[in-house]
Design a protein around this nucleic acid. Structure first.
Length: 497
RNA sequence: GCGCCCGUCGUCUAGUCUGGUCCAGGACGCCGCCCUUUCACGGCGGUAACACGGGUUCAAAUCCCGUCGGGCGUGCCA
């Protein structure tokens, strides 16, 4: 009965895809998928000064990485100028737009003055009071002008929020909106290009968009676009405004990208940091949306089933880095092991850690051991380093606790001896031997395990000792034990390592 | 300034439309315990919130008014 859903994601190619944009894309995508609708990609590149192809590429790349595939497009507004021209001509013919000749500087001054006088700084319609001959003369003389949309003086424009719970609406007094500009300055010979609110309204109508889902920062734009749509006698889509994503109380902005390298706002930088697409999508979905069950883990397929615009929140959504990290860790541990291995390899290689000469399956095992201690793919190189190279130093805290006495060296030597003789060299064979060693020395097993752990990994914390020894191999394990014993005896560690 | 939106544990949130089941539920963080060769994972438990003031009502986190606080918009950007 209702029309098939058509939604769009309309980024402007003036930079990378940031998490806010990604969230908008995701919600539109989910709405399309949930309703078997169409997800359209539209590149809003009317600002030729700032739009770049590289940026478009990066945005598409990030969308693909997230798994947000589009059914139509990408359409480029820069290639639809004829359509905008047509609509503009029609509005002009109907007297719904008018040329205004003020320069930017003049407008700035007017705005400042209005603010100083505590007035709403909307355009004073000076151009509307120009006589037709005056206008014609100015245009013919080549004076630059912009087209302004004549907002009705009476009444108000309602932006309904019909999809949200509670059905609210925002009302804007038309008189307070002001005659906004729909084209850049131009002359009769060289017309100025169309501006955002105008092209957006034209395209949404032309592309048959049924639902416009975007950030709440667009609320006042929506009123303008509805006005435009009504003026063009086109159907008005359903609008839904998403809670703003904030961090530190402020809207998350592209300009925050370099504030802290650990917490970038671009999707691509998150990817490079070792965030998983699954976690990213899951986390983004919870920015403004929640499930009544309180459940917070939603793989994509489940998200499509459970998602709904009626469960959007209204309060700003804060970007909780801790939760994002936590969810990333969850997906690291719960995605198929071979998948994680595949994704970890580039990070390891970038750090110069290659498992090419290791036995089949070795890397998977090693990653499997450390994965529960990692929450980002990028943590693997450091976490796994000791599997690739002998420790260059020992954790000072451990040295003090476990390497303090000559007995420690003796213990490590003895352990080395046991490992040399162990047959086969595997956890099952090693464990009884080492436990016996502890008993002989009348020590709890921990007292034996910790020095050994420190000797072979350089750390006081690691996965189970027997697994570590097995994967390190007999030769390497023995070598590290002897090296550590030697270091203890030589006294170099006491000096502070 | 003006317009619009919002305000629940340290943090993210559920609950607000349709007042009672909420002395407020979940998650993250933190703390403790269990598991245990360490760390982590996992399990169990704990911590902690309705911005404030009025009103309506037998009853308010939920409705109304005001105050305060925060955010967004206010572009010849999108």
């Amino acid at each position: 009965m209702s029309k098939p859903v058509r939604v769009r994601f309309a980024p402007s190619p003036t930079g990378f895809l940031h998490v806010g944009g990604a969230r908008t894309a995701l919600f539109n995508w989910l709405w399309a998928r949930k309703n078997s609708g169409t997800f359209i990609l539209r590149v809003e590149d009317t600002d030729v000064e700032r739009s770049t192809e590289a940026s478009t590429e990066q945005i598409l790349d990030s969308l693909r990485w997230l798994g947000l595939d589009w059914d139509e497009g990408p359409y480029y507004q820069s290639q639809r100028m004829e359509l905008y021209r047509e609509r503009l001509d029609q509005l002009c013919a109907e007297g719904k737009i008018y040329p205004a000749f003020e320069t930017k500087e003049e407008l700035d001054r007017m705005r400042e003055q209005a603010m100083a006088e505590k007035r709403n700084p909307i355009y004073n319609r000076a151009a509307l009071r120009l006589s037709p001959t005056e206008v014609e003369e100015r245009m013919k003389s080549g004076q630059a002008f912009v087209w302004r949309f004549k907002v009705p003086d009476e009444g108000h424009t309602v932006v309904p929020e019909t999809l949200m719970s509670g059905e609210s609406e925002c009302r804007f007094e038309n008189a307070a909106i002001g005659d906004f500009i729909v084209t850049r300055p131009g002359t009769l010979d060289k017309p100025g290009g169309p501006l955002y609110n105008f092209v957006c309204a034209v395209d949404d109508a032309d592309m048959g968009i049924t639902h416009v889902i975007r950030g709440a920062d667009h609320l006042s734009n929506t009123a303008k676009q509805i006005l435009l749509l009504e003026a063009m006698v086109r159907e008005v889509p359903v609008y839904t405004h998403l809670p703003l994503i904030t961090r530190g109380g402020k809207k998350m902005s592209k300009r925050d990208e370099d504030a802290d390298p650990r917490y970038p706002v671009s999707v691509s930088a998150r990817r490079d940091l070792g965030y998983l697409r699954e976690a990213t999508v899951n986390f983004l979905a919870l920015l403004g949306w929640s499930h009544p069950s309180g459940e917070e883990i939603f793989p994509l397929d489940e998200l499509i089933r459970e998602f709904g615009l009626e469960r959007l929140g209204k309060a700003n959504a804060n970007f909780d880095e801790d939760k994002y990290l936590h969810q990333n860790g969850w997906y690291m541990r719960n995605l198929p092991a071979e998948e994680i291995v595949r994704r970890a390899i580039p990070f390891l290689e970038a750090a110069g850690l290659s498992a090419a000469d290791r036995p089949e399956g070795w890397l998977a095992e090693v990653i499997g051991l450390e994965i529960e201690r990692c929450r980002l793919l990028s943590e693997f190189p450091e976490a796994l380093a000791y599997f690739f190279q002998a420790p260059e130093s020992y954790e000072p805290k451990g040295v003090r606790k476990f390497f303090g006495s000559p007995e420690a060296a003796e213990l490590l030597d003895q352990t080395a001896g046991i490992l040399e003789a162990a047959e086969p060299f595997a956890g099952e064979a090693l464990e009884p031997e080492l436990r016996r060693l502890a008993e002989e020395r009348q020590l709890g097993f921990g007292k034996v395990a910790q020095p050994i752990r420190l000797a072979v990994t350089g750390r006081t914390a690691s996965p189970g000792l027997f697994d570590v020894l097995r994967l390190l191999g007999r030769e390497e394990s023995v070598r590290r034990l002897r090296t550590a014993a030697e270091a203890i005896r030589s006294g170099v560690l006491a000096a502070g390592n």
